[in-house]
Design a protein around this nucleic acid. Structure first.
Lengths: 335, 335
DNA sequence: CTGTTAGCGCATTCAC
DNA sequence: GTGAATGCGCTAACAG
């Protein structure tokens, strides 16, 4: 039986070497550079290792080579539905390349993010910062010490993949204007968020270009609750349509509407962002498509390109988005 | 300025030792056991380290002590909304204790899960397996080699935290029966899932006890799509109510209903599980409450208890659940 | 209180 | 093709 070892004790290269009647170096080669050994010896050593339950010690290997086989990914909030697909794709891509991934949750805090980076730094080959809340100077400093890829944060000179929701947001405004809306609310996301800035600016510009009013409403932190609480201000603003920072916030808005016996689009037209609610809300939420899964995968690949020593010092990968029309947009109420 | 070092190069304990005019051991102590040194020496060494930009190398430390300061958590699907709160809570609890967490996505596959465990094993002090898809024997073997905590998997002798949805599921059946339903569908989850078995059995028993029919319908993998596709079979079964493996599946069922111009509870009463859809669906989904956030936090704390050497060899922590009534349950259609 | 000595488990020069 | 040294950066006895 191949599982009867002393608990909490690992088999080392030396034991395999002795059991196989070879030197430790040979065992090492059998695992790290098999092609330099006679195929037969490799097979024999591997067999012995198998029955002994030996597995190379990553830590020791890392200390010796400097390559840890780990990367880290830090997000502001794991529970925000925008991130899980990104995390999952990143983890899959890493797995394919025999890498392990650390996960960090910054809880929307730059300080926390910095603390996480510090802990990861010593045991990873590179970092992915998704929607980083860190000041630009700090990001630059980190990038100078560790390979770094940004997601949804546009810092010149640092490799980054951006989901360009500005286009979708502008489309949203134009669509609402075409329906007859003349005053549109933008329900804000986190102040330190690049995506939030992109959307806010896009909405403002598109509104200005169409000659309609745009009023920005703070929602502090993107969440269902924030959206629900924003409803009062939205209605009070006299706007007939709203674009929210993300779908989570939008779902809150929808709920806040329901609570008041109102509904979209009859009382308010609504557009979300990220397309994570799918057709799961009622009415099905119109939104701006996102591509977080792809973003995660691409970020990992860019990071690996850097690690392989290719001069990918200033990649800027932009993913387009589009308006996804479902059931929350319509003409303004007659009032 | 304290950030001007050669990129990608770390300063070691020796350089600090030389610069501070002490031995390497002393520098080491200044960071790992400061209280055994004169406060003044600690301060001086720390100052030197600061200006040199020194930070302890986790990998070397781990190799020497055997303590990596890392744990790993493996889930079947990061993108399944049941897990992000669990992951997040686990990561927060680990952060408080100065631990880093590896994340693995098994993609509902036992083999994948095993592969992940193998990679993590060498660099973590313990593992958390959430909804493990591994055979029981394998879990036992792993637990014999590494501290291990299970979530939603009941293996005697292995520390585990269980979300007992059986109670909620039985309540659900009784509620449906009280409303007048006489044939109830259970839309199945993954075969290897402990939670699925719990729910299936609970529904069957409660149905039997109430003298009503229960028909089990496979949904392969818990997902929106699986639920959507299950609608045909549900309707064909002649049942007037359904309990689904989870909220994700339920949302799919709701969508499938909408597609056919039907709705809950008029055409079908529906109960989900996990309470992750909240009031976001339409109609708001009745469901069985879950407590994945707590489960994640507790699992980490149990793991730490084990690591601290307390004899927590057979913890069995059970979290109760309850039926959460919203808007998808009603009397059966007259037909 | 602090310095000296010895490994942790592995990869990597060199020889043979 | 394989074995014998050496060191990765740090901590853990043991002295003094």
């Amino acid at each position: 039986m191949a599982g009867s070892h002393k608990p909490f004790e690992r088999v080392t290269i030396s034991q395999v070497a002795e059991a196989a009647g070879v030197s430790r170096a040979t065992v090492s080669r059998a695992f790290s550079r098999p092609h330099v050994l006679k195929a037969e010896t490799v097979a024999r050593i591997r067999a012995v290792a198998q029955t002994l339950g030996y597995a190379p010690n990553q830590t020791a290997r890392a200390l010796s080579t400097g390559r840890h086989g780990n990367i880290a990914i830090i997000v502001p909030d794991v529970a925000n539905p925008f991130f899980p697909p990104l995390i999952r794709a990143a983890q899959e891509a890493a797995y394919e390349a025999d890498y392990c991934v650390f996960l960090g949750n910054s809880d929307e805090s730059g300080e926390r993010e910095d603390g996480l980076v510090g802990r990861f730094a010593g045991q990873v080959e590179g970092l992915i910062l998704a929607s980083s809340r860190l000041p630009e100077a700090r990001i630059r400093a980190l990038a100078a010490m560790k390979p770094l890829v940004l997601v949804n944060r546009d810092v010149a000179g640092i490799p980054r993949v951006l989901i360009d929701t500005a286009g979708g947001a502008a489309d949203g405004v134009r669509h609402l204007v075409a329906l007859g809306h003349r005053r549109i609310v933008y329900v804000t996301g986190p102040a330190a968020s690049w995506s939030n800035e992109q959307r806010r600016i896009a909405v403002r510009r598109a509104a200005a270009a169409a000659g309609v009013e745009m009023v920005a409403l703070p929602a502090v932190r993107p969440s269902f609750e924030a959206g629900r609480k924003a409803v009062a201000a939205i209605l009070q603003s006299g706007a007939t349509a709203a674009i929210a920072f993300d779908d989570l916030t939008s779902q809150g808005v929808l709920a806040g509407l329901h609570e008041r016996g109102l509904t979209a689009p009859d009382s308010l037209s609504l557009i979300g962002c990220d397309d994570v609610a799918g057709p799961m809300t009622w009415p099905p939420l119109s939104t701006i498509s996102s591509r977080s899964r792809e973003a995660g995968e691409i970020a990992v690949h860019i990071l690996f390109d850097i690690l392989r020593g290719r001069g990918v010092s200033d990649a800027r990968y932009v993913l387009d988005t589009a308006l996804v029309l479902r059931g929350t947009c319509g003409p303004p109420p007659q009032s």
